[in-house]
Lab assay of single mutants.
Amino acid sequence: RTAFSSEQLARLKREFNENRYLTERRRQQLSSELGLNEAQIKIWFQNKRA
């Protein structure tokens, strides 16, 4: 289980509010910017949509 920092969570929530689905390219960008792997971001979005 991933423990996200408050900064990472704030960024993910802001991104989710703008778009509930990420393109592969956007997921790669977020992964690089947040220091998370793409799978972690993908799962976070899946869980948030559920």
Rank of each mutant, 00 (worst) to 15 (best):
R1F: 13
R1L: 14
R1T: 14
R1K: 14
R1M: 14
R1V: 13
R1D: 15
R1H: 13
R1G: 14
R1P: 14
T2N: 12
T2F: 13
T2L: 14
T2G: 13
T2S: 09
T2Y: 12
T2P: 14
T2I: 12
T2C: 15
T2D: 13
A3S: 12
A3L: 11
A3D: 12
A3H: 13
A3Q: 13
A3W: 14
F4P: 04
F4T: 03
F4L: 12
F4H: 02
F4Y: 07
F4M: 09
F4V: 05
F4I: 10
F4C: 05
S5C: 04
S5G: 05
S5F: 03
S5R: 04
S5A: 03
S5N: 10
S5Y: 02
S6Q: 13
S6A: 13
S6C: 15
S6L: 10
S6D: 13
S6K: 14
S6V: 11
S6Y: 11
S6M: 09
S6N: 10
S6G: 08
S6E: 14
S6R: 11
E7H: 08
E7V: 08
E7L: 08
E7C: 08
E7R: 06
E7T: 09
E7G: 05
E7I: 07
E7P: 04
Q8W: 02
Q8I: 10
Q8M: 05
Q8F: 03
Q8A: 06
Q8L: 04
Q8G: 02
Q8Y: 01
Q8K: 03
Q8N: 03
Q8C: 06
Q8V: 09
L9G: 01
L9D: 05
L9A: 04
L9W: 05
L9N: 05
L9E: 12
L9P: 00
L9M: 07
L9I: 12
A10V: 08
A10W: 06
A10R: 08
A10P: 00
A10E: 13
A10C: 10
A10G: 05
R11M: 06
R11V: 11
R11K: 08
R11W: 05
R11P: 01
R11D: 02
R11I: 11
R11L: 06
R11T: 07
L12K: 00
L12E: 00
L12M: 04
L12T: 00
L12I: 02
L12N: 00
L12V: 01
L12P: 01
L12S: 00
K13F: 12
K13G: 08
K13V: 15
K13N: 15
K13C: 15
K13W: 15
K13S: 13
K13H: 15
K13E: 15
K13Y: 14
K13M: 15
R14C: 12
R14T: 10
R14V: 11
R14G: 05
R14K: 13
R14N: 08
R14A: 13
E15V: 05
E15M: 04
E15N: 01
E15H: 03
E15W: 03
E15A: 12
E15L: 04
E15I: 05
E15T: 03
E15D: 02
F16D: 01
F16S: 02
F16V: 02
F16P: 00
F16M: 02
F16R: 02
F16H: 03
F16G: 01
F16K: 01
F16C: 03
F16T: 01
F16Y: 10
N17M: 11
N17H: 10
N17W: 07
N17E: 14
N17Q: 13
N17A: 14
N17Y: 09
N17F: 09
N17I: 09
E18G: 05
E18C: 12
E18Q: 10
E18W: 06
E18L: 10
E18V: 08
E18P: 01
E18K: 14
E18F: 08
E18H: 09
E18I: 10
E18N: 10
N19P: 02
N19M: 05
N19L: 04
N19K: 04
N19W: 05
N19D: 08
N19T: 05
N19S: 08
N19A: 04
R20F: 05
R20A: 12
R20Q: 13
R20C: 10
R20I: 09
R20D: 06
R20P: 15
R20Y: 06
R20H: 10
R20M: 10
R20G: 08
Y21V: 09
Y21C: 09
Y21Q: 07
Y21L: 07
Y21N: 07
Y21H: 10
Y21T: 09
Y21S: 05
Y21G: 04
Y21F: 12
Y21D: 07
L22R: 01
L22H: 01
L22Y: 02
L22Q: 02
L22S: 02
L22W: 03
L22G: 02
L22T: 04
T23P: 06
T23Q: 04
T23K: 03
T23C: 05
T23L: 03
T23F: 02
T23M: 03
T23A: 04
E24M: 10
E24H: 11
E24T: 13
E24V: 14
E24D: 13
E24K: 15
E24I: 12
E24F: 08
E24N: 12
R25Y: 11
R25D: 12
R25N: 11
R25G: 12
R25E: 15
R25H: 11
R25A: 14
R25F: 11
R26K: 11
R26C: 04
R26P: 00
R26E: 06
R26H: 06
R26W: 03
R26A: 07
R26V: 06
R26L: 06
R26D: 04
R26F: 04
R26Y: 06
R26I: 06
R27L: 15
R27H: 04
R27C: 15
R27V: 15
R27I: 15
R27P: 02
R27E: 07
R27D: 01
R27Q: 12
R27Y: 12
R27T: 15
Q28H: 09
Q28W: 06
Q28S: 08
Q28L: 10
Q28I: 10
Q28D: 04
Q28R: 12
Q29V: 08
Q29G: 04
Q29M: 10
Q29E: 12
Q29W: 08
Q29L: 10
L30C: 02
L30Y: 01
L30R: 00
L30I: 07
L30F: 01
L30E: 00
L30S: 00
L30D: 00
L30P: 00
L30G: 00
S31N: 02
S31L: 03
S31T: 05
S31F: 03
S31G: 06
S31Y: 04
S31D: 00
S31R: 03
S31A: 15
S32Y: 13
S32R: 14
S32W: 11
S32E: 14
S32C: 09
S32M: 14
S32P: 01
S32L: 15
E33D: 07
E33I: 07
E33N: 03
E33L: 06
E33A: 05
E33K: 03
E33W: 04
E33S: 04
E33Y: 03
E33G: 02
E33R: 03
E33T: 04
E33P: 00
E33Q: 05
E33M: 05
L34Y: 02
L34T: 07
L34H: 01
L34W: 02
L34N: 00
L34G: 00
L34V: 04
L34F: 02
L34C: 02
L34P: 00
G35D: 06
G35W: 02
G35N: 08
G35R: 05
G35S: 06
G35Y: 04
G35K: 06
G35M: 06
G35E: 05
L36G: 00
L36S: 02
L36A: 04
L36M: 07
L36I: 11
L36D: 00
L36V: 10
L36K: 01
N37S: 15
N37C: 07
N37A: 13
N37K: 09
N37W: 04
N37R: 08
N37M: 09
N37Y: 06
N37V: 06
E38G: 06
E38F: 04
E38R: 04
E38V: 09
E38I: 07
E38A: 08
E38S: 07
E38W: 05
E38Q: 06
E38L: 05
E38C: 05
E38K: 04
E38M: 06
E38T: 06
E38D: 06
A39G: 09
A39M: 14
A39F: 12
A39N: 13
A39H: 12
A39T: 12
A39C: 14
A39R: 10
A39W: 15
A39D: 15
Q40G: 03
Q40S: 11
Q40F: 11
Q40R: 06
Q40D: 15
Q40H: 08
Q40K: 06
Q40V: 15
Q40P: 02
Q40E: 14
Q40I: 15
Q40L: 14
I41C: 03
I41T: 02
I41H: 00
I41N: 00
I41F: 01
I41K: 01
I41A: 01
K42I: 14
K42H: 15
K42Q: 14
K42W: 14
K42G: 10
K42C: 14
K42Y: 12
K42A: 15
K42N: 13
K42L: 14
K42P: 00
I43W: 15
I43F: 10
I43G: 08
I43K: 11
I43V: 08
I43Y: 11
W44C: 02
W44I: 03
W44H: 01
W44Y: 08
W44R: 01
W44M: 02
W44S: 01
W44F: 08
W44Q: 00
W44G: 00
W44P: 00
W44K: 01
F45E: 02
F45C: 02
F45S: 00
F45G: 00
F45R: 00
F45A: 01
F45N: 00
F45T: 00
F45I: 02
Q46W: 11
Q46A: 13
Q46V: 07
Q46G: 06
Q46I: 11
Q46T: 08
Q46N: 07
Q46M: 10
Q46K: 12
Q46C: 11
Q46H: 11
N47R: 13
N47I: 13
N47Y: 13
N47Q: 13
N47A: 10
N47T: 09
N47P: 02
K48T: 12
K48P: 03
K48G: 05
K48D: 03
K48S: 10
K48I: 07
K48F: 09
K48N: 10
K48L: 07
R49P: 03
R49C: 09
R49K: 06
R49A: 10
R49S: 08
R49M: 12
R49I: 12
R49L: 13
R49Y: 07
A50M: 12
A50P: 05
A50C: 11
A50T: 08
A50Q: 11
